[in-house]
Nucleic acid binder design. Structure first.
Lengths: 174, 174
DNA sequence: GTCCTTGCAAAACATTTGCAGTTCC
DNA sequence: GGAACTGCAAATGTTTTGCAAGGAC
């Protein structure tokens, strides 16, 4: 599944899974005595409906289309809240930015190919790798709570583009 | 292979591999017209002989035992140089700190289990996972230059300790 | 003598926090 | 009404950069 930067996520995710996440969030907020504000609702809806792997910056821009006055801190705090209750997962792909994605069951089992040239992020799923991970964890008596499996390199498009432009793979001599 | 925090790395690494890395660095520096200074030599030797997964902070402390006046910037710049020429790899394990390890052939093929409770880092190697990675890359026409595979959770010791102390696994209600 | 390197301090960067005012329940 | 929330600005923590002085070749 290749996810283009501006593609919306809604269509991909099982509506029942979305519902379950909303319920989990709701429960968590009640338990903690947290409040439902206009800003939080807007940020959360934007996050649920937006593209995967959005950065804080991405989210803030989208959110400000509806409410000009929303500040960075509120977005940070809200996404942190989502991560705390297991509704969102924070991801870092090495460009120094935090990205967030829905923590539904499907997301829990996919990993990423990241193109270092164009920034494209491709998701993949490989049950046989998961199987091996479990074997390894068992071997070391480790109890796994999460994992990160990323492969960095050049996507097919960029390999083609590089060949055409004569760009060098190994730019050791600038 | 479990690596304790203060264990030295020297004994683990094939001397020929170390030699190859030194040569690569040497070649790179000559090609770029870079100079061999006392500070660089000290930082590089300390890195080569020190424990794996050292942070900049760790390195600076060790280096200052021999030369009090070395600054952060020099350590940053030198490690960046090592990473550029493929002698060191930068790793981030989610605690906000950059760690560096030797990029020898063995390191290129191992990944990490990270204990979220005590910070222990366990290295593992699984050729069958590498095999599957290659399959996936091929399927997407991706050319892989590096990868990152980390599993986070609790190590055997910490599971034991947690049980004894009655610590709760899921601290949702603070 | 070049021009690369260093150490310092300042800047840059993403993220967090303190606070006064506002909103929710 | 009181606690939670917001937006701002200031603080934080890590990493990078500008610069004048020093050192390698």
């Amino acid at each position: 599944m290749v996810v283009a930067p501006n593609e919306e996520r809604g269509a991909h995710v099982d509506p029942a899974a979305l519902e379950a996440l909303r319920t989990r969030l709701q429960t968590y907020m009640v338990k903690k005595g947290l409040r439902s504000t206009a800003q939080r609702r807007l940020i959360i809806d934007t996050f649920f409906e937006g593209a995967p792997h959005m950065t804080i910056e991405d989210l803030l821009q989208k959110v400000r289309n509806h409410d000009r006055g929303i500040g960075y801190a509120t977005v940070y705090r809200t996404l942190k809240l989502l991560a705390e209750c297991g509704v969102a997962s924070e991801r870092r792909f090495g460009d120094g930015l935090s990205r967030y994605e829905l923590a539904d069951e499907a997301s829990a089992h996919h990993d990423h190919l990241i193109c270092l040239r164009c920034g494209k992020i491709i998701e993949f799923e490989e049950p046989r790798i998961e199987q091996l991970q479990d074997e390894i964890a068992e071997k070391y008596g480790f109890l796994i709570t999460s994992h990160k499996h990323e492969m960095y390199g050049h996507c097919a498009d960029c390999q083609r583009a590089r060949k055409e432009s004569g760009e060098d793979l190994d730019e050791l001599d600038e």
